[in-house]
């Protein structure tokens, strides 16, 4: 379980990193953030990068800013920071709740926000949160900077809209005051990959549900937003069957893959149950917040 030889560079700034990526473009360099996925993949020899650009010395990417409830999180911010930050708990409680479910504590102390989102593991929590929160993802390259909406970022398993010479530098989250939230997931053991995870945000409009945002992980080829279920919820009475129906609709059309831990059929069953549980919790919290 040792990786084959590879070229390694540890730049200190974003611009150095970008020029290294550009310089070695032909070799398809891999960016190393927290290393909690890439390093095992290399040790198992499932990934054979010939060039690795390590961002751990790029301190300018490790930050968390709050501006009128809008959160901006540097890509190299460790996941553990999310759990402990008062700003995150206040401004993006969904993110704080999800962060606590990422693997185990030691992993969260190394794992980064940007690393998880750019790696785009279908079972990872942060992509689902980014989708549910309508996050804006900032990508930088030698060609400049661009902002990618989360809804356009996740393309498939381990596949994103990032170009080979681009680095994800920050995650911007809009303010969402007064929103009920819930992140729930089913995993066989604590800290293991989620078979299904659900990120839910729910606003009340009078006695009715106003806006709802719902994103899943584990249930598809990548994290996904389930807009049909959201539409069904918008304007519905929370007392009726809307949540149950939304759970059915959210699962409809999904074909989760089978793996060592669960059949696709079981994951589908879990999706319905966990969408329901997430929405019920989000609703209760929205009602509490009034």
């Amino acid at each position: 379980m040792k990786p084959p030889p590879f070229y390694y560079a540890a730049p200190a700034t974003v611009s150095e990193a970008l020029s290294l990526l550009s310089e070695h473009r032909e070799s398809e360099p891999r960016v190393l953030a927290g290393g909690q996925s890439l390093v095992p993949l290399m040790n198992f020899r499932l990934a054979h990068p010939t060039h690795v650009i390590d961002l751990n010395k790029v301190t300018e990417l490790s930050f968390l800013r709050s501006d009128d409830g809008r959160l901006t999180i540097g890509a190299m911010t460790r996941q553990a920071v999310l759990e402990r930050s008062a700003e995150v708990r206040l401004g993006a409680p969904l993110l704080a709740e999800a962060a606590g479910m990422i693997a185990h504590e030691p992993i969260r102390h190394r794992g980064t926000v940007g690393g998880s989102i750019a790696h785009a593991d279908p079972a990872a929590e942060l992509p689902a949160v980014a989708l549910a929160m309508d996050a804006e993802l900032v990508a930088a390259s030698g060609r400049g900077e661009r902002v990618i909406p989360a809804t356009e970022f996740f393309l498939g398993p381990f596949t994103t809209a990032l170009e080979p010479d681009e680095v994800l530098t920050e995650v911007r989250l809009p303010a969402a005051p007064g929103t009920g939230y819930a992140f729930v997931e089913f995993s066989r053991t604590h800290g293991n990959f989620a078979l299904v995870g659900v990120a839910a945000l729910l606003e009340l409009d009078g006695d009715r549900i106003g806006r709802a945002a719902l994103a899943l992980c584990g249930a598809g080829p990548c994290a996904l937003r389930v807009t049909e279920a959201e539409r069904l919820l918008a304007g519905a009475s929370p007392d009726g069957d809307a949540i149950g129906e939304a759970a059915e609709v959210a699962a409809a059309g999904l074909t989760p893959s089978s793996d060592a831990h669960a059949s696709g059929e079981f994951k589908l069953r879990l999706t319905r149950i966990y969408v329901q549980r997430a929405l019920e919790t989000a609703l209760a919290r929205a009602q509490d917040r009034r």
Partner: peptide, 28 residues
């Protein structure tokens, strides 16, 4: 509840690391 060395129909060991071979931790 958790641990099983699973061989699939082709005899592949699908639980060949701790990612797939599940053990209870202090949390379980």
């Amino acid at each position: 509840l958790y641990e099983e060395l699973v061989y699939d129909a082709e005899g592949q060991l699908v639980t060949s690391s701790f990612m797939d071979y599940l053990m209870p931790s202090a949390m379980e």
